[in-house]
Design a protein around this nucleic acid. Sequence first.
DNA 1: GAGTTGACGACTT
DNA 2: CAAGTCGCCAACT
Length: 110
Amino acid sequence: MSEKQHFFQKVYNVVAQIPYGRVTTYGAIAEYLGSKGSARMVGWALNSSKNSINALPAHRVVNRKGLLTGKRHFGGNETMKNLLESEGVIFNDNQIANFKELFWKPNSLF
DNA sequence: GAGTTGACGACTT
DNA sequence: CAAGTCGCCAACT
């Protein structure tokens, strides 16, 4: 297992740790991994995860604005938004209204 | 093997 | 304040 895979593995690990009703951002995860600017890799990791047997709560990962940019990868419908709303997340159109409150940072106690 | 894309983010104009 | 550009690194064509 190379260190690159560690990057992906870490993403899986962090995303899996996101508490119910909480959300995080790609950048926060990337930063936690030590590659602050590689938020795209986090997205790639999730993209790979959907192809894997991993059942990651990727719907809890949004961009820094709290926008569901990845909803199109959930089948193109509002599955992502629906799931989050199910967890008590308040939405304003496609943006999380109380994003700041729900923001969960890796390395944070949960 | 080289170029393009991508679930982002921060900086610059 | 809004839009454009660059950087990040791996995967896909």
